[in-house]
């Protein structure tokens, strides 16, 4: 039956055309398409990998940043507390010193005052003594101006002494 009998002409032309088609299309389409698509697929895969890697890197970077920030915050707190402590200490020291200075000044002043007082008192004493002498001289001069008076005085002194 001719339906299932292979015909030489068709096999000849079919084979020939198919082979020409195979070589032409391999050159025109299959090879460029497959290599370009393969490169594209590799590019896509690499891009995805790169994106994942970048994301991971970003995560680490973020974590690092946070760590740094935390450290910085701790440092800052430490610095602030240290500064305030120092300030307090300085103020206290200044106060202490001030007090000491003040006490010393007061002491010195008292010493000076005392010295001046002493000097004044001694001078006053000297003045009082000299004045007393002058007065006594004048009084004695007046008292001893007449014999009666000298006599009275002598009597009085004698009385005083005897009384003692």
């Amino acid at each position: 039956m001719s339906l299932i009998t292979p015909a030489f002409g068709q096999i000849f032309w079919g084979g020939l055309v198919f082979l020409i088609l195979l070589f032409l299309l391999a050159k025109l389409a299959w090879k460029p398409v497959l290599s370009a698509v393969k490169n594209r697929e590799e590019g896509i895969r690499e891009s995805i990998e790169l994106a994942a890697k970048t994301k991971a890197e970003m995560e680490t970077l973020k974590a690092q940043n946070e760590e740094l920030l935390k450290e910085a915050r701790i440092e800052r707190d430490k610095m602030i507390s240290e500064a305030s402590e120092t300030a307090k200490k300085m103020i206290a020291e200044a106060k202490e010193e001030g007090k000491a200075q003040q006490a010393k000044i007061v002491e010195d002043a008292q010493k000076v005052i005392n010295a001046e007082k002493a000097a004044a008192i001694s001078e006053l004493k000297t003045q009082v003594a000299s004045l007393s002498l002058e007065i006594a001289e004048k009084v004695i001069k007046g008292e001893l101006a007449s014999d009666d008076k000298q006599k009275a005085l002598a009597e009085q002194i004698a009385n005083d002494i005897s009384l003692n």
Binding site: L21, A36, N39
Partner: peptide, 30 residues
């Protein structure tokens, strides 16, 4: 049938030459 083979071959060459044009000389396909 041989005529049909020729027609199919010509259609295929026209179609896939146009297809291949987008990829030929390109490192990475758009």
């Amino acid at each position: 049938n041989v005529f049909a083979i020729f027609c199919v071959a010509i259609i295929m060459i026209l179609v896939f030459r146009a297809v291949g044009k987008q990829y030929r000389g390109k490192e990475v396909a758009d």
